[in-house]
Design a protein around this nucleic acid. Structure first.
Lengths: 151, 151
DNA sequence: CCGATGTCAGACGAACTGACATCA
DNA sequence: CTGATGTCAGTTAGTCTGACATCG
């Protein structure tokens, strides 16, 4: 059962360091990958959230992305100008504005998914499928430990 | 042997998304943790590198942190002013300036290690020691896949 | 002359806080 | 009145590119 060597019990130092380093590389590469399509990394992230969550208000998006509502709003202004998202007044509340992907938004998101997928293949080339699944689960657990449920 | 369920073979989508999300939370918490000590997250990272690498030139630090030499230099100016690092001319080269931790730098780094350690305990509370070691190894592999050796 | 290094200066993307109006 | 929401404005921290001098 014990397949791991015994020399790594008190060595998980620098997990935060590794996460930061990996994110930095990831962001740089993603920026280069997404630039030709005309979107930024925060924009891609927001589009990603809209696809999985459906319709959201600006305040809800800010909560999901863990940013200030003003920051989320600035992101939306640019994406609305590009025609990727549309604002529609909420029926049951006169102030809330529901935002959702347009067909153009879905199309460009699908297009970028391919590029991101390719990048992930490069970065996690050394990991087997089950290792990736495990990494995925561990990251989800870590994110869940510090933020609200439902990532 | 098969201890995992079979429903996660083609699901490792969004690894980049999770890394980005986790780094965002980590950065926010770290900033709050380190602020009382008077240093920023990039500064802590640089100090961390100097401890593991010993003495480095500004150009070498820029390579390690994967930033422009100008960015690294700006970081160093602030830390030199605080007395955490010292610049010493290289004996074998008149232009290169070797930078290393001062005793104050080592002290404040040790002090912050404790805070970072506490934060990691919160974020990775759901993971056992061997799971953390595995996560550590996987992250190292991922970083190594896209940057130079020797993290 | 050329390449690597160090450093000053300005510019930029992406986040922040403050302020204010609107709606239930 | 209070609280939540949307949005305009100014600001900040962190990084970048441009420019230039120095050293081998």
């Amino acid at each position: 059962m014990v397949t791991r060597n015994l020399s790594a019990p008190q060595q998980p130092f620098g997990l935060a360091y590794l996460i930061g380093r990996l994110d930095h590389v990831l962001n740089t590469r993603l920026r280069d990958s997404l630039a030709p399509a005309g979107l930024t990394v925060p924009q891609y992230t927001a589009l990603w959230i809209f696809r999985t969550q459906g319709s959201l208000s600006n305040a809800q998006l800010a909560l999901r992305t863990m940013t200030a509502p003003q920051s989320a709003n600035e992101l939306l202004r640019a994406m609305e100008a590009k025609g990727w998202v549309a604002r529609n007044a909420d029926q049951s509340h006169g102030r809330i504005i529901q935002i959702s992907l347009t067909e153009e938004g879905q199309a460009i998101l699908l297009e970028c998914d391919h590029k991101v997928r390719e990048l992930e293949e490069v970065i996690f080339a050394d990991l087997q499928a089950d290792q990736r699944a495990e990494l995925h689960a561990q990251l989800r657990a870590a994110v869940g430990a510090v933020s609200l449920e439902g990532i």
